[in-house]
Write a protein that binds this DNA or RNA. Structure first.
Lengths: 360, 360
DNA sequence: GTGGTGACTGAATCTTAAT
DNA sequence: GATTAAGATTCAGTCACCA
């Protein structure tokens, strides 16, 4: 079977993976059934019913059956991976420990466990546990010898020039992004947010890499692969999900090539201290900066700190302090008026970097 | 063997646990060895050397040894747990997946996986992975039937009155808290911060509960147990660590009793029958009660039931019936007019409880 | 357009005491 | 042990609707 690039295949992932040639994919993202074991209905304090995951595809007899299923699909997945390929598997405490142990048993080499912290998780309605506010992704190479791809600079740039950590704060997939049927009901109970796949693919794949998703669902991996100009192979067993994923994949448009290429200028650009922009007069001392809504404001000091009343700190620190946030990207948080429009500090940073490049 | 309360035993934890009586502890915190001794060579969690040969069977054999060790100590731990006891196990991606799977296989019931997000993790020096900025704790009950302890109100209070989430941001153990030898070197490679154990014990134990730590190390669990007035049993194999833990335990002072008592939780308050409020005239017979919007109404009877047309029942039952809900908390559902304002029955209940307290 | 209100929702292993 | 009734319990966000 030739490699079915940029297609979504309808059928069982183990059967279909068996038909694909060994060593043919660069990266796998897999969102297998979690084997949730829900024992009854759950109601919110206002008595409304929680729409839990009760689909047949998430039902397994016991742990042994789930383990067998996991070993089978991971074995095929590993066969399809090039020797330097990596795999991502997402899960919750119901299944992720079994998956992690089986990954290790099969010879995969775990690189990180990455925690997706949900900014808006469903609360715990009965007050009997901690709010289950995260899911876990395991990122593993095919073997300890794999010389895998990790776009370190891109991740660092995405994280305001500090190393990307193993815990990612991202919202659930809601609102317009969530695919719905003609009745306005969610098409898939567990659609993943695009932001999550965006970061996964940006971190571990390159342009034209072959990405496989054996549990495509409604195609978030498919859409993000196309947007970021990766090649995609999807497998989905459920005809309704597959149909939705195919339509979504067709509608998706790739970003311009230059925006998805790792930018050497950006990667090698030295970190620009805010103070240096002040020094160079690109942002005058005394400038009044505010957040986007103008709820908080501060004044630029000569040393590159901001002052707001009796508080003083870096653009990041003061932004966090004034909004009671644990952290803040001051570059994008603070705005100031220029030519009658509000622009972020980051705009000036980018302009200054471009000017430096031109000078070299 | 009598229960060695408030002691730290020197020896192998499996051997020593075998000598303790079954069903004798309320909570276990375990920080088992990962055996990650990186001396310029790669070692697996069980300390075996990665030999550079991609031999699946060999790797499985190594993991098997770690699994056997894990199964052995967890089996003994489970025997020591009361039927409603819970266990915490902390680990990293090297070992936590194996531990989680074995916990499930042994019949434990996972309640949460809790992520300890390190506010000051060690950076990734080689830039080949995400900064490993967290560790994972599994919190599990002895069985699915366990009626385990979770101090919901205390956790909510600790978190600015919103539910405590499954991701905790806490700094590493550094500075003065870190135990050091006479050369100023850290005594133990993975000493856990007191804040972590403080939260663990506050969440899942009560005053005078028996806490066991089979891998005591330098005794963070011991110290926090004593500080919070829990009873402690520790086991440590390494004489230097045990000695340090014993000294630390002896130096630790318990907090005042009133400060370690749990935050008052509504579900622990004594139950007041609605009828007794009627008897005491706090809510007069004949009072007209309604829901918040005034859509349904009823009249208070002398026996503490409500009457609405031909229907009659308890405040809960009638509330449920009139709204076609499966259940209803009558205390917060029903309102009545007092001094020109609508107040809930619950307000009266709380007032009467406060009056009783004052009278005592 | 803007702002305020209220309804709705999300991978969830979600109670306990008394009879 | 099974059954029944009491009663404790939610956060961040989106969107529709209306003033």
């Amino acid at each position: 079977m030739e490699l079915p690039l940029d297609q979504i295949l309808l059928g069982d992932c183990i059967d279909l993976m068996r038909m694909l040639p060994a060593g043919s994919v660069d990266c796998i993202f897999a969102d297998p059934p979690y084997n949730l074991q829900l024992r009854g209905e759950l109601r919110r304090p206002d008595d409304s019913l929680v729409d839990g995951v009760d689909d047949d595809w998430d039902k397994f007899g016991d742990y042994a059956e789930y383990d067998r299923f996991t070993r089978d699909w991971l074995t095929e997945a590993r066969r399809l991976m090039r020797k330097d390929a990596t795999i991502w598997v997402i899960g919750s405490y119901h299944n992720i420990f079994r998956i992690g142990a089986i990954l290790q048993d099969l010879g995969f080499w775990i690189l990180n466990d990455v925690v997706w912290r949900k900014s808006n998780p469903m609360p715990n309605f009965r007050g009997r546990r901690f709010t289950n506010a995260h899911e876990t992704m395991i990122w593993a190479a095919r073997s300890p010898q794999s010389r895998y791809r990790f776009n370190y600079a891109a991740m660092k740039a995405l994280n305001d020039d500090v190393q990307m950590r193993s815990d990612w704060l991202l919202p659930l997939c809601t609102g317009n992004e969530r695919l719905r049927n003609q009745h306005g009901l969610k098409l898939h109970p567990t659609q993943k947010p695009e932001s999550l796949l965006h970061r996964v693919l940006l971190a571990s794949t390159g342009v034209d890499d072959v990405v496989l998703d054996p549990f495509t669902g409604t195609g978030t991996t498919a859409a993000m692969s196309k947007r970021l100009r990766r090649r995609f192979i999807g497998i989905e067993r459920h005809p309704d999900y597959a149909e939705a994923a195919i339509g979504r994949f067709q509608r998706e448009r790739p970003l311009p090539m230059d925006s998805v290429m790792p930018s050497p200028a950006k990667r090698d650009a030295p970190r620009v201290p805010f103070g240096s922009l002040v020094e160079r007069g690109l942002i005058p001392v005394g400038t009044r900066v505010t957040d986007k809504q103008g709820r908080v404001s501060a004044i630029v000091s000569p040393d590159g700190t901001l002052v707001s009343g009796s508080r003083r700190g870096s653009i990041h620190k003061l932004g966090a302090e004034l909004t009671n946030a644990p952290s803040c990207n001051g570059w994008t948080f603070w705005h100031f008026e220029r030519d009658g429009a509000l622009v972020t500090l980051d705009v000036v940073r980018v302009e200054s970097a471009a000017a430096q490049d031109a000078a070299e």
